[in-house]
């Protein structure tokens, strides 16, 4: 890969600042990847993600890796350079979502977007609405249908969402948060 300092610096600077992590200090020991529960399903393993940021390769924003990270923080606990890889991946997720970068992990993106849309609407997460929201956005409406029926039978899925009373507070919070982002 061709390395060009002027090309490289803006991206690593941006992600380091957004995550509060010193991405440049990664020397590829691979401990983050060794402890990652989902590394085997990623297109780029966590230490490779750091390397790509160091190279200034923005194509990492379209990877599956960033969306498969579940935030277990094992990488953060084990890194000899105190990089919280999970925080770096969160910064990449936010940048990718903001720029509308496509990824094959559209169902994970749908999950997070539907989750926050539900909270914005009701103040609380409602599981059935969330599941329907994800399936409508990303397909597979009948995935896990059997599981859903079993959950319902056991009284684990409520049909009707609960809402908070103070809608004005919620509206203010979301509006002001958007302005400060």
């Amino acid at each position: 890969m061709r390395m060009n300092v002027t090309e490289t610096r803006p991206f690593i600077k941006q992600i380091s600042e957004a995550s509060g992590q010193d991405v440049a200090s990664c020397y590829q020991c691979g401990k983050c990847t060794a402890g990652c529960p989902v590394a085997e399903h990623m297109d780029f393993v966590p230490n490779a993600v750091h390397r790509m940021i160091q190279y200034g390769d923005r194509s990492i924003l379209g990877s599956s890796a960033i969306w498969l990270c579940v935030g277990c923080e094992t990488c953060a606990v084990r890194c000899p350079n105190d990089i919280a890889t999970s925080a770096v991946l969160d910064a990449l997720k936010r940048e990718a979502a903001e720029k509308g970068v496509r990824s094959r992990e559209k169902s994970v993106i749908a999950l997070h977007k539907s989750f926050l849309a539900g909270v914005q609407k009701r103040g609380r997460m409602h599981e059935l609405s969330l599941i329907l929201g994800i399936r409508l956005k990303s397909g597979g409406l009948f995935n896990d249908m059997k599981l859903g029926i079993e959950m319902f039978r056991r009284g684990k899925l409520s049909l009707f969402p609960k809402k908070i009373k103070n809608k004005r507070m919620l509206r203010n919070l979301f509006e002001k948060a958007r302005r400060r982002t």
Binding site: K93, F174, T181
Partner: peptide
Amino acid sequence: EDWICCGASSGHSLDEVLHIALPAQ
């Protein structure tokens, strides 16, 4: 009274302000 969702992992995945504002509320 009138507690709101903490934002869970979707909060910190997508929004640098909400992921603090929701639990902080």
